[in-house]
Every structure is written in C-alpha cells, then in structure tokens.
C-alpha cells in the first residue's frame, strides 16, 4: 500500500499520527493499530526514500506503535485484567494524542487572538523593539516544513525541468569530404575559410583534425607563409573524382 506524503506540516510523530487517523476517518478511541502502524511506517519509508533523515522521535513512535500492536495480539489472561490498571495497550497513546490535539487547537486559538503590532497597536510601539532585527523573521523550522517548502518548489517548477543534452555529432570524415570538395573547385584554400565565424571551438578542432588526417593520407599539403599566419591547404594529388573511403571509426575519434 502506498503512502501519499501529505504536504501538511507535521510538527512531530503525534501530529503525523493525528493526521493519519483523520485521513483514515478513524475514531481516535478505536485506533486500528495495525492499519495506522502500517501507514506510519510507509510514511517513514517514503521520507527515507527522499533521503531525509528521520528524526529520532519518529523512530521512537514507530517502536511504540509496534509494541502496542504486538501487545494487542497477545491473549490477555483474566487475572491480568484484574491486576492491570490499564486494560487497553492503546490507552497511553490515545491519551497523548488527545492531549496533543488540545494544545494544537489552543495554538490555533492563540493565533486568532488579537496580537500586538498585528491587530492592536500602541502609541509607543514597544513590541516592535522586541523583534528589532532587520529583515524577515527567522525561525527554526522543522524538517517537515523544509520538505513542504521543497515540494512546493517542485510543484512550481515547470514540468520539463530537465532538458535533454544530446552529444553533437562531429564527424571528421564529413570534414575531410568538405575539404576535398572545396579543393576540387579551388587550387588553394585558407584554413580560416573552413571554420565558421564566429569561431566554435569544437568546429575548429574537428576541421583541424580533418586537415591533419588528409596530410597523413598524403592527399593534401599544407603550408604557411610565415609563422603564426594563415595555413594554406593545397591538393597533393589530382583532385578529380577523389573520394575518400574512410570510416569514422578508423580515426579513433569516435
């Protein structure tokens, strides 16, 4: 069973449990421990698959749930019922959940109370001096607030965020053919005419390699009038119907 990670903020394992219970429309007093435990563990797995460190508190709760689950599987002896004050292994957990729910609600009530410098103002704004740091308020946030922020970002990001990078196919053979074709029309060729303007490094490299290959194959000659000047290419053989039957791989550039 897969577990959707809710975008809700979870303030802790109790908060998460309350969320799961609500999501499953369970009666808090009749928690289906097996089901809730599975969902809880699914959630933790999902968090782990996101490479998030699970706070220790969550693992403690996982252990607690498993313990309750196993205790619920054990038969209860009658004499134990008399002795044990706490009949239901879930009682402690339920009590904690309810207690937490109370303060969660209270927190909402607090948020709604009129607050100084938000709803009510004084002639001398003294609360402002309490928070007198510059910039936005920075508060410690939980890991889950971060997850939420991260997921929000992902949502906003355009779907095709990844663009495909294809290797540009640069063929030395092709350049060799280009050079040979050009030399059929002209007796001489400056290297600068072979490369695009503006210069593209990879083009220059491939063209230069093609030139060297042609020299090696003794099909052309190259020369310079002066050091660091234009390289001139000229055919070393008759260029009529010259074709080169070379395969790209034979150069070893692939």
């Amino acid at each position: 069973m897969s577990c959707e990670i809710s975008i809700d903020k979870f303030e802790g394992p109790l908060d998460l449990l309350l969320h799961l219970i609500r999501k499953e429309e369970m009666d808090i007093y009749e928690i289906e421990i097996a089901q809730i435990t599975r969902q809880y563990l699914d959630f933790i797995d999902a968090m782990q698959s996101l490479n998030l460190d699970i706070a220790g508190e969550y693992l403690v709760m996982a252990a607690t749930l498993l313990q309750i689950k196993s205790r619920m599987l054990l038969p209860v002896h009658e004499e134990e019922i008399l002795e044990e004050e706490e009949l239901d292994p879930r009682a402690e957990l339920i009590r904690r959940l309810l207690e937490y729910q109370r303060y969660k609600d209270a927190a909402l009530t607090f948020a709604a109370l009129p607050q100084l410098d938000r709803d009510i103002f004084l002639a001398t704004p003294q609360v402002a001096e309490v928070g007198n740091e510059e910039g936005p308020e920075l508060e410690p946030v939980s890991l889950y607030a971060l997850v939420e922020a991260f997921r929000d970002l992902l949502k906003k990001a355009p779907k095709d965020f990844v663009h495909e990078v294809t290797a540009e196919h640069l063929s030395v053979t092709e350049r060799i053919q280009t050079i040979l074709n050009l030399l059929q029309q002209r007796p001489q060729l400056p290297f600068s005419e072979l490369v695009p303007v503006p210069l593209v490094r990879s083009e220059v490299v491939v063209m230069f390699l093609a030139m060297l290959e042609l020299v090696k194959m003794s099909l052309i000659k190259i020369y310079q009038n002066q050091r660091c000047h234009e390289i001139w290419l000229a055919p070393a053989v008759s260029m009529d119907d010259e074709t080169v039957a070379v395969r790209e791989e034979s150069f070893g550039y692939a």
Partner: peptide, 26 residues
C-alpha cells in the same frame, strides 16, 4: 482599524511558527 495602521508600515508583527504557537500554548 488595524488595517489602516498596517498601511503606516511602521510595525512588524511577530510571525509565529506552528511549533512556536503550540509550545506557547502548552
């Protein structure tokens, strides 16, 4: 009249995180 005073822009309200509110309530 809170909204009008906010327009003054002189006040910076303290924004509570949920954790802060819960803790404060407790």
């Amino acid at each position: 009249y809170a909204e009008w005073i906010r327009r003054l822009g002189h006040h910076r309200p303290f924004r509570f995180s949920r954790a802060a509110l819960e803790t404060l309530a407790i």
